[in-house]
Design a protein around this nucleic acid. Structure first.
Length: 949
RNA sequence: GGGCCUAUAGCUCAGUUGGUUCAGAGCGCACGCCUGAUAAGCGUGAGGUCGGUGGUUCAAAUCCACCUAGGCCCA
């Protein structure tokens, strides 16, 4: 009689496939979630629970422009892990994703798409085109984010361009105005005098242009800080290519670390930077030089000199080295007063790090109204922002005798005047061909010109101080986030809120038609907000100003006619008030629990949100701020299109699936920058296989197991099965702590450890015999299945925030699952077995012996003595405690070591391996002593024979 | 140039307040076994002067300084 005993072996069986095939399967799972409204039900069921805690992770809005990149994926997946974990934990963690919609990048793209058509469109029409553009990208990005498996209110997100949000932007602006934080100031911007419009940096193109190149002497009123020069009148030498900015000159900047020289030329004492003296003489007095061909740029030692000073002018170059009367420290020049060459005023010498030795004299003509650096340094010195040029490029009255002249045409006149008055040191005809900013539309040279703009004052009502104090009441993760934002708030200038653009929320201010006085009225702004609520920002242009001002009169002159402000709000205000427009509006409460964004947002969203919230509400809008690093390539380099080292999330999803991407996010320590490469992703995919197969094995082993009928009470489980539960509990604790502390990578590693070591190589391997060959419905086998059932479902529950698709899929194959979806099952709440500590200690030691045994088995295997370990019989020599433990565990040892026989012996510790005697049981492959005890099954061992009865 | 940060095996990460157990884990790799988890599973093994240099200390991956490489934000 030939019995095929293989058919009697209870092998694992499951429909949960080994091959994940995630790219195909995930979309189906996604559909399932949507159809069953899993997220909505999850949040709703948590909200029903009495006393449920709320946890609000407020989404920082990505910009609605372009496809999502890997950084977006990292950010959204991290958020999703947090949201899912909190919900699983039973907290009400709703998540409303958002988009940032206004702003220059979209306006520029739309500009380009519209082309010349734009000229015939009014602002409302351009706005509509921008809306459509943003809408298109929101839809695309939304699908991409959903494909990542991110749960949220995708059907009801927030967008900064929705009417309600636009209204809220105005309301928050009104709140800030009411509290007195807004003021009007001047700031230079690029300006096209042909188109009479401000330009963004992106709208400026550099083209070659020929400018005058002149050296001008400014007469010092103060004496130079050098005794031997006492009584001598000295002059500061500046160089400029824009004579028309001289009427706006309010300072001369020197570098604090440069050395300057006082050089006597034609009876005047001229001050220039030491390293630029020869350059200056080459341009203005070549006869002073022995070497005529002085290079255009600075001398070779200029850099060394620039950093430390030291060294003298190479006197070999000079005809009259003795004309260097003195060397002066840059720092010592600060505060010297000079007289403007043609305006009736005196101005100071200031210090600035922006001064270079690249060109000029090391003394920089400074006009805060006409240059970004000039403006910056001017702020530090409290200089006025003087702009004597109107929008059409004509000098105003403030330019004195040049009033009414076109600035570029006035260049020649100014130079001639300087020459006549003896202030010009160079050839009046000298010119320079250089790269100069031009308007991208009309290609005429642009100017830098200060215009009136609105600012949020950092000093009003102690805003800066109060913001710094608020920072210390926020939990920054990692901690250094605090230092980062603190330093920024400490040093930043007032916030310029005006943008000279179209696509954004108008600054809700009007100006008196009579005296140009601004009307900053919270009541008027309220009407504006109401109009926006109904019509969007288009209302600003559709309605006459009177519709909003409604009879209000100018507080200064009493006139009742107004014109509207043309500028819009900085988009950082838009997203910066999301705490009001979203968290307050939707009743989440402010401050929210968490903002979670990349580390660039210390300057961005964390920053703008903090300022608006402290100004308006007096506290930070968040309790915690979590930052992650940037995604770098495999070599740790930043990704860029030009380097061609970008990795698109879409590509990974197509090749591996979103769960692999999610696993990548969870495995990385995101507090630092995170790397991604083919190698890394492939490695994660291997790790995924391990986890998946571990789960699959459990599901297979649970074939035919009905927990309601077959489960064994935990205290009656076999000791090894209780050990498995102890390991599960330890893992459970680690993983929960990792989620709580936002250290997800620790969860990943703990999970790999659990799957690869505790489960796969130890537990599963050891219980195989029990599962496969013992009596199918016997208690020992049911004991193992009970443990597996518990382990499997807890693993799935705790993995669900990360491996959402896989956990969801596997949950569907779990017999007797306690909830319809893994996401509705909650976190594991299982207690550790009462004797967990003892079990871990006992098996820990036994497994140490097991490792020794395996070493010897491997030797025997290499020697050809055995193949699989069941072919071995081992003798273990041990003494003391170990011997006692082994004696106690004697019956269990063959199972634990997966050998056919274990003999204990005296003597120094060691292991001997020999081939197991006798023949193997045809069914369980163990070389058993009692083979053939049942005459009905002569080739089987006693255990197998009884299993078949 | 400034502010903040990072640097441990090929990869991803542990390494609490410096000290027997501190140079670890998993993966990958090499070699072998199994063929009853099979495009799986098991075993054994090789791999690092803890970015570099100098210092503090009886003792440093761990503290300090500088340097190198890299990241973000400014200028």
């Amino acid at each position: 009689m030939l019995v095929d005993y293989k058919d009697t072996v209870n092998l694992p069986k499951t429909a949960f496939p080994m091959k994940a095939n995630l790219p195909q399967r995930e979309p189906e799972i996604l559909r399932g979630w949507e159809e069953q409204a899993i997220f909505q039900r999850l949040v709703a069921s948590n909200a029903e629970r009495p006393g449920a805690k709320r946890f609000v992770l407020h989404d920082g809005p990505p910009y609605a422009n372009g496809d999502i990149h890997i950084g977006h994926a990292l950010n959204k997946i991290l958020k999703d892990v947090v949201v899912k974990y909190r919900n699983l934990k039973g907290e009400v963690a709703d998540y409303v994703p958002g988009w940032d919609c206004h702003g220059l990048p979209i306006e520029l793209k739309v500009d380009k798409e519209l082309g010349p058509k734009k000229r015939d469109m009014d602002r409302a029409q351009i706005i509509e085109a921008c809306r459509a553009y943003a809408r298109k990208w929101i839809d695309r990005q939304r699908e991409s984010f959903k494909r990542l498996g991110v749960f949220g209110r995708w059907d009801d997100p927030y967008t900064t361009m929705s009417k309600g949000y636009e209204a809220e932007i105005v309301r928050t602006f009104a709140r800030a105005a009411e509290k007195g934080f807004l003021f009007r100031g001047k700031k230079p911007v690029y300006w096209c005098i042909t188109d009479r419009t401000a330009l963004a940096e992106a709208e400026v193109e550099y083209e070659d242009h020929t400018s005058p190149s002149i050296y001008v002497a400014f007469d010092l009123v103060s004496p130079l800080p050098e005794a031997k020069l006492a009584g001598k009148k000295a002059r500061l030498v500046i160089w400029t290519t824009t004579p028309w900015t001289l009427p706006a000159n309010l300072a001369v900047a020197a570098h604090p670390d440069f050395t300057y020289v006082a050089y006597e030329l034609h009876g005047q004492v001229l001050v220039v930077a030491k390293d630029l003296l020869t350059r200056f003489l080459a341009d203005c007095a070549p006869d002073e030089l022995l070497v005529k061909d002085v290079p255009v740029a600075h001398s070779p030692d200029a850099h060394a000199a620039a950093t430390g000073g030291g060294g003298l002018v190479p006197s070999a170059h000079l005809v009259h080295p003795e004309r260097i009367l003195a060397y002066l420290d840059g720092k010592a020049l600060e505060g010297l007063i000079y007289r403007h060459p043609f305006m009736d005023r005196e101005s100071p010498v200031i210090l600035g790090e922006h001064v270079t030795l690249e060109a000029g004299t090391g003394l920089v003509h400074t006009a805060p109204g006409h240059g970004a650096e000039d403006y910056q340094v001017g702020l530090a010195y409290g200089l006025e922002v003087l702009n004597p040029v109107d929008g059409a490029g004509r000098f105003t009255e403030e330019a004195g005798k040049y009033a009414g002249k076109k600035i570029f045409e006035a260049n020649a006149e100014i130079v001639a005047d300087l020459q006549a008055s003896g202030h010009l040191l160079s050839d009046p005809k000298a010119s320079l061909r250089h790269s100069y900013p031009h308007c991208w539309r009309c290609h005429n040279p642009v100017v830098f010109r200060a215009t009136d703009q609105w600012f949020l004052s950092l000093e009003h009502d102690g805003l800066r101080k109060r913001t710094l104090a608020a920072i210390d009441r926020v939990q920054w993760i990692p901690r250094w986030g605090r230092e980062r934002i603190y330093g920024m708030i400490e040093n930043r200038p007032d916030w310029c809120l005006s943008r000279q653009r179209t696509w954004g929320v108008p600054i809700p201010v009007f100006y008196c038609e009579g005296c140009a006085e601004p009307l900053v009225s919270p009541a008027v702004m309220g009407r504006v907000a109401q109009a926006f609520e109904a019509e969007g920002i288009e209302a600003w242009y559709r309605h006459a100003p009177a519709d909003f001002t409604q009879g209000d009169r100018c507080p200064k002159c009493g006139k009742a006619e107004f014109r509207r402000e043309q500028d819009i709000l900085d988009v950082w205000w838009d997203s910066g008030v999301s705490w009001a427009a979203v968290a307050e509006k939707r009743g989440f409460g402010v401050p929210v629990d968490l903002y979670l964004e990349g580390s660039d947002q210390h300057r961005g969203w964390f920053h703008s949100s903090l300022l608006t919230s402290v100004a308006i509400r007096g506290q930070a809008p968040y309790r915690g701020v979590l930052t992650h690093g940037f995604v770098l390539d495999g070599h740790g380099k930043a990704m860029s299109k030009s380097l061609g080292n970008t990795v698109a999330p879409e590509e990974i999803i197509k090749k591996y699936g979103a769960d692999i991407l999610r696993l990548w996010v969870s495995a990385a320590d995101y507090r630092d920058d995170v790397r991604i490469s083919n190698e890394i992703v492939a490695g994660l995919a291997e790790g995924y296989t391990k986890i998946r197969n571990t789960v699959r094995y459990m599901l297979g082993a649970l074939d035919g197991f009905d927990p309601a009928r077959d489960a064994v009470p935990v205290e009656e489980l076999e000791p090894l099965d209780r050990w498995a539960l102890a390991k599960l509990a330890a893992w459970d604790e680690k993983v929960k702590a990792a989620y709580e502390n936002y250290e997800f990578h620790l969860a990943y590693h703990a999970t790999m450890q659990l799957c690869a070591v505790d489960l796969s190589s130890l537990y599963f391997d050891i219980i195989k015999d029990r599962l496969y060959t013992w009596k199918k419905d016997g208690k020992p086998r049911r004991s193992a299945q009970t443990a597996l059932w518990l382990v499997c479902q807890d693993v799935l529950r705790l993995l669900a925030p990360v491996l959402s698709f896989t956990a969801s899929e596997a949950w569907g194959h779990l017999p007797g699952r306690p909830a319809e979806s893994v996401f509705l099952a909650g976190l594991p709440t299982r207690a550790r077995p009462a004797d967990a500590d003892a079990l871990e200690a006992r098996y820990g030691k036994l497994f140490e012996v097991r490792a020794m045994v395996q070493k010897k088995l491997e030797e025997a295997r290499r020697a050809g003595l055995i193949g699989k370990s069941l072919e071995a019989a081992v003798t273990i020599r041990a003494e003391g405690e170990t011997r006692a433990l082994l004696e106690e565990a004697k019956a269990e040892l063959p199972t634990l070591f997966i050998v056919s026989k274990v003999t204990l012996a005296d003597g120094p510790s060691g292991v001997d391996v020999e081939r197991a005697p006798g023949e193997k049981c045809e069914r369980c492959w163990i070389y058993a002593d009692d083979r053939g005890v049942d005459p009905a099954h002569p080739t089987l061992c006693g255990k197998c024979a009884s299993a078949l009865r």
